[in-house]
Design a binder for these strands. Structure first.
Lengths: 176, 176
DNA sequence: ATTATATGTATGCAGTCTGCATATAAGTCA
DNA sequence: TGACTTATATGCAGACTGCATACATATAAT
């Protein structure tokens, strides 16, 4: 039985499959390392990153950028606050909203979180030569640029990115 | 503050980060499509794929290949059996073990599951030209071949792969 | 054959994560 | 002032998971 895919090229069929396997591998390694080394769930890690990147954010804003409902985000941040990683302050301008920021311990966790994730992805790349890396960079950039729609999906896709490694002006998802 | 990564090349630092973002994107799209279109959790999908690939497997064997504990796998398969997707029969050789196989509906779901995942990854590749695809294939193959350790991690990484697109003799994780 | 051990399944229990519905507080506008 | 919107918080329920344990079956040693 032949499947009805858009791509008829047999080579690309294989490429698409191993691309999916690579995604599984990366997420498995990153998330299990976060859990075991830092006791952070995937969404807790995302919340930490977002509060680190945009101090003063409200819960609502963080929820939108990590792709959770508001109530789920309230609980994620509640747990982080109980652990002393996040500090809540009612904002001056709008007394409804929380103004979130990381404590010193939270900032430390944020750095470790990025190091952990970067350790995984750097290790994957470390066996490639310069030409292979350049080709990979170019292909990934093209994919992200073409397929990620701006707005919510872009934010959610970048929810755990390291902004020291991908500022908005070079992010293939953001760049025009 | 400069971080202490193995890779000092600034270009590779960016590449590693967007590689991580790509993994997030793929897993988000695949898993949310499975959930909304087929009502399958990520691990339920993996169990279906594994039973499809190796009919007659025991629960224990499936657990090992998808990376869950035995008890969690019992429940995943129990739910699939309740839905009529999986059929359990006590094996003849060993009356302790279940011999799992997919029902007709289960096989249909398995095909849809692969089509859904392939739809996501094919779409990502569809904007690349032949040279880019070839370079990507080659880089991903090199990464998987070098970094995935045989045995448990290999099995778990391949837990939702489409064996019509990646037979063991061409799988970069399996080949010597 | 009997007994001890190992293997495969199943289940009680608890903990985490999530979404929906709802309640409360605070801001906005007619 | 009153109606509406926005931001947060919480009760509730459901899904998923691991640990500890119970039970059945197989295997091996005596």
């Amino acid at each position: 039985m032949v499947d009805q895919d858009a791509l008829s090229d047999g080579e690309s069929r294989h490429t698409a499959n191993i691309l999916g396997a690579l995604a599984v591998l990366i997420q498995d390694r990153v998330e299990s390392a976060w859990q075991s080394a830092l006791d952070l769930s995937p969404m807790a890690a995302a919340a930490v990153v977002q509060i680190d990147n945009e101090p003063g954010s409200s819960i609502e804003q963080v929820a939108g950028r990590i792709g959770l409902t508001h109530s789920a985000t309230v609980r994620v941040i509640d747990k982080l606050a109980e652990r002393g990683l996040v500090e809540k302050d009612r904002a001056r301008k709008d007394a409804r909203a929380q103004s979130l920021k990381l404590s010193k311990a939270g900032k430390r966790i944020a750095q470790q979180l990025h190091e952990t994730r970067n350790g995984v992805t750097d290790d994957l790349l470390s066996g490639l030569d310069a030409a292979q890396r350049k080709a990979l960079e170019q292909a990934i950039s093209a994919i992200l640029h073409r397929t990620v729609e701006p707005g919510r999906e872009a934010d959610v896709t970048c929810r755990v990115c390291d902004d020291r490694r991908c500022t908005p002006d070079i992010c293939p998802i953001r760049v025009a």
